[in-house]
Structures are given as structure tokens and as C-alpha cells.
């Protein structure tokens, strides 16, 4: 079995990718491309209880827990947000609840997202991260309850 990459390593990959771009036009094109490539969520998951509160766009997020690792799937009606989600999934999916809970996600700042995207709050990026960590926490608590 090959070792799982650490969250920080995955973040580093994204930061390196972004460092190749000269302009935000290119960065957005890259994010949009990621958004377009992220597989659409099955319709059955696109229901209210899976919605993450954003402002202008809708984001659906589901999580599964298998062999001690959390897998995320998500979708949005807006493609840039979807691209951002895609990066979060790339970084956080396939990790243990503890790893996810402790993830600092410095890459968001490092790629300039927080300063550039004025709408970081309203586009629900912060809400997304919180929801992903909440899922991880729920799985962790479930685990601990099962042990007793």
C-alpha cells in the first residue's frame, strides 16, 4: 500500500500550480476548468438538507465514511464556486476525521483567494470548510460512541 499523501502536501501542490499563472484571468480559467471537471452530484443528493448556506449560489455537499477515511462529494450551480469546492475536495477527501478537523488550509490564503475574491464569505467558501469539518467531527464522534 502506498502511503497516503498528507493534507499539507496536497495543499502545496495547489499552491505550486497557482504559482505558474501570471494573472488572475488565468487563475480563474484554471478554477473554472476544475469546476467544469468536478463530476456532477447525483440528483438524489441535490436536496435541501445537503445544501451549504452560501449567499448567491447553491452548494450541495455529501460525505461518506469508509475504512476510517472521509470521502466528500459536492456540486454547485455556479462554476467558480464549484472549482473552489473541487480544490477543497482534492485536499480534504480521503483523510481521517482527525486530519480533516486539524487541517489549517493555509493554501486558500496563499493562492491569494481571500484577498482577491471579495466575495469569499458570500460565496460560501468559509461555510464549505466549516461544513466539511463538521462532517469529520460527526464521524469522529460516531466512531467514539461505537467503541464504547
Amino acid at each position: 500500500m502506498t502511503a497516503r499523501p498528507r493534507i499539507e502536501e496536497l495543499e502545496e501542490e495547489i499552491v505550486e500550480n497557482f504559482s505558474l499563472f501570471d494573472s488572475w484571468d488565468e487563475k480563474y480559467e484554471y478554477i473554472i476548468d476544475l469546476g467544469k471537471k468536478l463530476p456532477a452530484l447525483e440528483e438524489e443528493h441535490k436536496k435541501d438538507e445537503n445544501k451549504v448556506r452560501g449567499c448567491q449560489s447553491t452548494v450541495w455537499l455529501v460525505a461518506a465514511y469508509k475504512d476510517g477515511l472521509v470521502e466528500f462529494k459536492a456540486d454547485s450551480d455556479a462554476v467558480i464556486v464549484k472549482g473552489l469546492i473541487s480544490m477543497l475536495i482534492q485536499v480534504l477527501s480521503g483523510h481521517t476525521p482527525d486530519e480533516i478537523i486539524q487541517a489549517k488550509l493555509g493554501f486558500i490564503d496563499r493562492i491569494g483567494m481571500t484577498t482577491h475574491l471579495a466575495q469569499t464569505r458570500s460565496n460560501g467558501l468559509a461555510a464549505m470548510v466549516k461544513q466539511m469539518k463538521n462532517f469529520a467531527l460527526a464521524f469522529k464522534l460516531q466512531n467514539e460512541a461505537a467503541k464504547h
Binding site: 488572475w24 484571468d25 480563474y28 473554472i32 449567499c55 448567491q56 449560489s57 450551480d77 455556479a78 462554476v79 467558480i80 464556486v81 475574491l117 471579495a118 466575495q119 460565496n123
Partner: peptide, 20 residues
């Protein structure tokens, strides 16, 4: 096209519109 995406890309060109 989602209005939010348009708003973000236009902002990147210095153009301020409202979306939502």
C-alpha cells in the same frame, strides 16, 4: 451562466455590477 460567476469575472476586469 450563473450571475455570481459573471460578477466575479467582471470584477476581475474592474467592472462593478450587482448580482443576486
Amino acid at each position: 451562466v450563473h450571475p455570481q460567476d459573471l460578477g466575479i469575472l467582471l470584477d476581475n476586469k474592474g467592472i462593478a455590477v450587482r448580482t443576486g
